[in-house]
Design a binder for these strands. Structure first.
Length: 742
DNA sequence: TTAGGGTTAG
């Protein structure tokens, strides 16, 4: 194997690292028998000058009696590198001792390494010497050099050593070392080339389970520095290992499954696990759990059930994690009662697994997320008394978040007190859920106060803390304070991530401060973050609102340069802009481009056009669009679409058509809302269709649709004018009754 | 097992 040679480099690695290498660790051998040939040779060597060795007959006869391993021992036990090298040279000069030379050389290398730790240059010199003198390398000598060069990132030198090993001596472990060396420094493609050789038929060094471990521990590592590995490649590798009867250890199988699932490749993960199962290799419950997690995230219930069934058939017992995943899945689908049933079964001992704090936390979080935080709170008692589980930080965080999101900030603070009284440590998430609760319920200044007091106690916020506060100030239209916090966060040691940039950009955009938004965008790019499609759409919309079409197009170009194609929202945004400015030609052009790009218009697309035609008093054109959406593109109109049409029709005194649209809504199952009724009532009032209005007032009450001040204004004026205040009184009453039932 | 963000019709 040939790799491009890089200039010779010396890397000084630490002494300790080199000493740890097993081959040099032989410093204190057992006390030798003084009459043994090894001891005799040693004492003879050490008591005479090397120049006298060639002419010493007793040395000559002693040496010829030694086996190569004995020569290895002798060389190793010489006091230093210099002596070992003299001895080695002596052996080389004696024609009948050539069998011992590779092992003696190995010992010389060991001496050199011990005396020159962290200096692979010395070893490289010796290696060159061995090549020049055609000294064959023992496998151990080669291993030593390979390890040393790999450590020092002298990869080309490492490969030279590998190429210098006698073909017949190469075995799997040596190749594994070379592969590990290459991978350590990110040279994936070279490692794969070598792996190909291992995979070759009749290879003398087929891959083993170490090879799998070395390979996957590198490429699945988060700090992997080489080129990225595709899922396809990983899958192929696993299959090829399988062909050689090597399957990844359960741990690696689990890691690979997790990776595939995270990237949305559950199919691949599924195949992989089943290949493993079918090969009869031991599939552990952890691997199944990884796949179940992925399947849950993709809502693939059919496969979840199938996998559970297969586990049962293969005797893979679900563990507490498996049930945790099941409960989590049920919670995610708001099927809390079924999730609670699983807990009951666990507690009854029906499942053979006891619930742990994870199970309780998942359930408490699930309950809080559907607004059943009171029940969540009660679970704390049950976890304590039924399961001897103590609530931890996460338990409290979930509950505090639940109460705060429900607006019960005081209860949240109470729980915060309780946790500190019970000695449960709070963390930055505790702080953030409390701050978020306060901010979302309009208590931004309390939030700042609380943050201040926590900082006084040494609790630092993080990026999330600042995102919460920045968004809150943006929503409160206090952009300057938001900007100030944005500046402050880095001074306080909180690094900015993409989310905090997005939040601020969104706030500035909403406030119409497009120059500031543009400035933050440039900061964001400087910080190495890219804008995503949502962010681009936001900015395009912001520039459109400011009538800066050129800037909007600039964004569009920028976005395409970054490899993003305009999506439905992009097109709808531009189309709405043209609709608002009454430029119907351009609006239709955008719609055509959208369709040409393979995107189907949405209800928003039609809504923008209908709205535009309505405001231009072109109700016919608006109705034509409405009919188009029903016939040609089968986009279901929503309440907003009907509202615009009904309002416009009524204003144009086409109340009959408006009424027919009310029927249409009923047929299509689209619910009218207060705006619908208000528009209709105005039309009916113009015609003074008293019977009709009573009919719709009843319908409104039946549907528990709340009247607003506009409704009341129309009805009060109209019904009192015709002396029917009693009907109005009943209507209001009916609403109050239905409200109290609700 | 817990926390943060953003776009389009009205």
């Amino acid at each position: 194997m040939r790799l491009p040679l890089k200039p010779f480099q010396l890397h000084h690695s630490g002494v300790t690292t080199l000493r740890r290498l097993s081959l040099v660790a032989h410093s204190s051998p057992p006390l030798p028998d003084p009459s043994s040939p090894i001891s005799k040779t040693l004492s003879l060597l050490q008591s005479s000058d090397p120049s006298t060795w060639p002419s010493n007959p007793s040395l000559r006869s002693l040496l010829s009696s030694l086996t190569p391993p004995a020569v290895l021992k002798v060389t190793r036990q010489l006091p230093n590198y210099q002596d070992a090298l003299h001895f080695f040279n002596h052996l080389k000069a004696s024609s009948d001792l050539s069998d011992s030379i590779p092992l003696a050389f190995q010992a010389v290398l060991e001496h050199a390494m011990r005396e020159n730790p962290g200096s692979p240059g010395k070893l490289y010199e010796l290696f060159q010497l061995s090549k020049d003198q055609s000294t064959p390398l023992s496998v151990n000598a080669a291993t030593l050099l390979i390890k040393c060069f790999a450590q020092a990132q002298m990869l080309d030198e490492m490969i030279l050593v590998f190429d210098a090993i006698d073909e017949e001596l190469i075995h799997t472990d040596v190749v594994n070392l070379v592969i590990a060396g290459l991978l350590k420094w990110g040279r994936l493609d070279d490692a794969l080339k070598l792996l190909d050789e291992m995979f070759e038929r009749d290879s003398c060094y087929p891959p083993n389970s170490n090879t799998v471990g070395i390979l996957f521990s590198s490429i699945l590592n988060r700090n992997w520095s080489g080129r990225s590995v595709t899922d396809e490649e990983i899958h192929n590798l696993v299959s090829r290992f399988g062909e050689h009867g090597v399957s990844p250890e359960p741990y690696w199988l689990t890691q690979i499954i997790m990776r595939f699932c995270r990237k949305g490749e559950c199919d691949k993960a599924w195949t992989l696990l089943h290949e493993g199962m079918n090969l009869g290799s031991d599939v552990e419950v952890a691997s199944c759990n990884a796949l179940l997690t992925g399947l849950g995230q993709h809502r693939d219930f059919a496969r979840i059930n199938l996998l559970m069934k297969e586990m049962k058939e293969k005797g893979i017992k679900p563990d507490v994690v498996t049930y945790g995943i099941m409960i989590k899945n049920l919670c995610n689908f708001r099927r809390l009662d079924e999730a609670l049933e699983v807990l009951e079964k666990m507690r009854d001992g029906e499942l053979g697994v006891e619930p742990d704090v994870f199970i309780y936390n998942t359930l408490i979080d699930g309950l809080c997320k559907v607004g059943r935080q009171e029940e969540g709170l009660k679970l704390i008692e049950r976890m304590r008394f039924d399961s001897k589980c103590e609530p931890n930080t996460i338990t409290y965080n979930c509950l505090i978040d639940g109460f705060c999101k429900a607006g019960e900030i005081e209860k949240g603070r109470e729980l915060f007190e309780q946790m500190s009284n019970e000695g449960v440590k709070s963390n930055v998430i505790t702080l953030n859920v409390l701050l978020n609760g306060m901010c979302k319920h309009g208590r931004v200044s309390s939030a700042m106060e609380f943050f201040g007091s926590m900082r006084g106690k040494g609790v630092k916020g993080n990026g999330v803390t600042y995102t919460i506060l920045i968004s809150a100030f943006c929503n409160a239209n206090n952009i300057d304070k938001a900007m100030k916090l944005f500046d402050e966060m880095q001074k306080n040691g909180c690094s900015r991530d993409a989310v905090v940039y997005y939040s601020l950009i969104s706030g500035l955009n909403q406030a119409g401060r497009m120059d500031d938004a543009t400035f933050i965008v440039s900061k964001m790019k400087e910080a190495g973050f890219g804008l995503d499609i949502v962010c681009y759409n936001m900015l395009i919309s912001g520039f459109c609102r400011k009538n800066k079409l050129d800037k909007a197009y600039e964004m569009l170009k920028d976005m395409e340069k970054a490899g993003m194609k305009p999506d439905r929202v992009t097109y709808n945004t531009l189309l709405s802009y043209f609709c608002r400015s009454g430029n119907f030609t351009q609006a239709h052009r955008v719609m055509k481009k959208m369709i040409d790009d393979g995107l189907t218009p949405t209800v928003v697309t039609y809504g923008a056009l209908i709205q535009a035609y309505c405001s231009n008093d072109n109700i016919n054109a608006a109705m034509k669009i409405f009919r188009d959406m029903n016939s040609s593109s089968r986009v279901r109109p929503n309440t907003v679409i009907y509202n615009m049409l009904i309002d416009s029709l009524c204003k144009n005194d086409e109340v009959e058509v408006a009424l027919s649209l009310m029927d249409d809504m009923k047929d299509k199952g689209v619910r009218p809302n207060t705006t619908t009724y208000n528009a209709l009532f105005k039309g009916l009032q113009q015609r003074n269709w008293f019977e009709k209005v009573l009919e719709f007032m009843d319908q409104m009450t039946e549907q528990a649709c709340n009247p607003d001040y506009v409704t009341m204004e129309i009805l009060t004026e109209w019904l009192s004018a015709v002396g029917e205040t009693e009907k109005l009184r009943k209507f209001v009453q009916g609403y109050q009754v239905s409200a109290s039932i609700a």
